[in-house]
Design a protein around this nucleic acid. Structure first.
Length: 141
DNA sequence: TTCGGAAAAA
DNA sequence: TTTTTCCGAA
């Protein structure tokens, strides 16, 4: 397969695989985004890859629970999100409150089984051969 | 609200 | 190296 054949890069990256240590914030964001029950808290909205944090305090609370950081808040969570700008994982959708957008031209990663991706917009990307979803992660740019 | 420097933490 | 914490500036 040629890297140029895909717009996204999405792969299953086991928690135990080398290189994946603790849950990363954007993995977590992606996780919430793919679950129906959190649509009132955070959801895809607008352009492809764009999402809105409808309830900043709740997202921060959930993130705090996951990372065992009881004092997490949106101010701090959003700082972590801002660090993603230079890393080209995310960028801000200016003018839209609490709205960010994933830069799919960069990577992809994922910590979750492909079966859980059915509801995500990534699934709308050009078909990718199933062999692509190996138990490793990929970085295409 | 959003940004990004600085420093500490993990 | 990523995230947390703190915070002044825009």
């Amino acid at each position: 397969m040629k890297a140029g054949d895909y717009y996204i890069l999405w792969a299953y990256k086991p928690e135990s695989s080398p290189g994946s240590r603790q849950i990363q914030l954007w993995h977590f964001i992606l996780e919430l985004l793919q679950k129906e029950e959190y649509q009132g808290v955070i959801a895809w909205q607008g352009d492809y890859g764009e999402f809105v944090i409808k309830d900043p305090d709740e997202v921060a609370r959930l993130w705090g629970i996951r990372k065992c950081k009881p004092h997490m808040n949106y101010d701090k969570l959003s700082r972590a999100l801002r660090y993603y700008y230079n890393k080209r994982i995310l960028h801000k959708t200016k003018g839209k409150r609490f709205t960010y957008k994933f830069n799919f031209s960069k990577v992809v990663l994922v910590n979750y089984p492909i079966l859980d991706m059915a509801s995500s917009p990534f699934f709308l990307a050009p078909a990718v051969h199933s062999s692509f979803f190996a138990k490793e992660w990929w970085l295409l740019s």
